[in-house]
Amino acid sequence: MTLNLLKSGEVAKITSVTADDALKARINGLGLRIGQEVAVIRRACMGGPLQVRVGHTDILMRPEQADLINLAK
């Protein structure tokens, strides 16, 4: 499953990221690395972005990007 499918308030581990190198580097730079636990805090209404938390960093991302991050519970 992907980060986009994770319900608000749930936590899961990142297993892989399916993106090109440039995007991968950015996702990595924000702390979304393989093996890290990640949680969805909330979603904006009308298909807007997600607020995601990893460690002590909160990140805003669109559902399209959340779909690139694969998780295992």
């Binding site: 924000l30 909160d58 805003l60 991302m61």
Partner: peptide, 9 residues
């Protein structure tokens, strides 16, 4: 462009 942005406290 993808959107990935930090939300600082």
């Amino acid at each position: 462009e993808p959107l990935l942005l930090e939300l600082p406290p």
